[in-house]
């Protein structure tokens, strides 16, 4: 392959030739691709519009929270909304895949999502492609940063709700309803929920007045307190009119998270009348609950601790989750 004459060429020239070959190879890859990207891009957008010919309405173009112009197919059939399953189920839409992490799924929806395959929370692109969605909804901006949005958008039109909307399930449901042409269902679901909450509030006030209650999540030997406005916190304090305990109201506004870590020592100062304990450590024995400090908390002494399964709805938000949380509260506090 290499003649003896060329071998006398100095090493440096060979090196140069090698570099050139590499550069050519790489740039060839690059230029090939640009053409193909365009191809596959247009192919992806023609697919939904073909489906639209059978649907009554037209595809519509909207702007999402990150400023992307998104063309929503007229009647999306294969929707992917990871961690938005509560909203989709409420609207009567079965997603093509459901959110999952290594150690589980959203168990409280397992009946509604029985036959729905799982997809990893970080939306691996090839997995997304394999489900062939025709519309993708993403909850938070940060989950699609640094180019992931553009990649997803190549698979199917992708709409980002944004944190502002996503952290309020009513707004989220309304927006998703508008996107999927199910505004009426969204409105009805919110109305139904509000009515259910109002009735429950009446019963609850009759039973316990406006006593205070804390929601504690025990996971891997650490306690977390729910924020007043999030998940089961919004149900208890906003919808059902219970009083948030001292430890929740004392958290400085700029350090609030949906679930705030709290040490066992700090918990000894908890003055709540009731404690709802979401125990994710049950399988590991949750020995921390045998400690003297835990047993010294007033609500624990009074026997007002209600242990909830970690497969329940208390860690989640949405019409469905919150409805189930209300059922739990009534069952536990209204005798």
């Amino acid at each position: 392959m290499v003649s003896s004459k060329t071998m006398k060429i100095s090493g440096r020239k060979w090196v140069g030739a090698g570099c050139m070959a590499m550069i050519l190879f790489l740039s060839a890859c690059g230029s090939n691709n640009t053409a193909d990207t365009a191809n596959s891009g247009s192919a992806a957008t023609t697919a939904p519009s073909a489906a639209a010919t059978t649907a009554p309405s037209e595809p519509k173009t909207v702007t999402d929270s990150m400023g992307h112009k998104v063309t929503v197919p007229a009647n999306p059939q294969r929707v992917l909304g990871s961690y938005l399953e509560d909203q989709l189920v409420t609207l009567g839409v079965t997603p093509v895949a459901q959110w999952s992490v290594a150690n589980g799924i959203q168990d409280y929806l397992s009946a509604e999502l029985k036959d729905v395959p799982t997809i990893s929370y970080d939306l691996p692109l090839e997995a997304v492609t394999s489900f062939a969605p025709d519309f993708i909804i993403v909850g938070s901006e940060s989950s699609v940063q640094n180019g992931l949005y553009d990649q997803l958008n190549k698979v199917a039109p992708t709409y980002v709700l944004g944190n502002e909307i996503n952290k309020n399930w009513r707004k989220g449901l309304t927006t998703i309803g508008e996107l999927l042409g199910k505004s009426a269902e969204a409105e009805q679901a919110i109305k139904n929920y509000d009515q259910k909450a109002a009735e429950a509030k009446g019963k609850l006030t009759g039973a316990v007045g406006s006593q205070s209650a804390a929601v504690l999540w025990l996971v891997q030997k650490n306690f977390f307190l729910v924020d007043e406005t999030q998940a089961s916190g919004s149900v208890l304090y906003t919808d059902l009119g219970m009083t948030p305990p001292n430890l929740v109201t004392e958290i400085p506004a700029d350090q609030k998270a949906a679930w705030n870590p709290v040490s066992l020592e700090k918990l000894s100062e908890l003055t709540a009348d009731h404690i709802f304990l979401v125990n994710s450590d049950k399988a590991e024995g949750s020995e921390i609950l045998n400690s003297a400090i835990w047993k010294g908390i007033p609500a624990v002494k009074a026997g007002h601790v209600y242990e909830l399964s970690s497969t329940g709805s208390w860690l989640y938000s949405g019409a469905n989750a919150n409805g189930k949380t209300i059922d739990d509260v009534l069952k536990l506090l209204v005798k």
């Binding site: 790489l26 890859c29 690059g30 090939n32 691709n33 193909d36 990207t37 191809n39 596959s40 192919a43 992806a44 697919a47 692109l125 090839e126 492609t129 062939a132 990649q151 190549k154 698979v155």
Partner: peptide
């Protein structure tokens, strides 16, 4: 289109 997407948009750039 699906195969093209996976190969040209997901796998090849990653390889390069």
């Amino acid at each position: 289109p699906q195969q093209k997407l996976i190969l040209f948009d997901f796998r090849l750039p990653r390889i390069v």
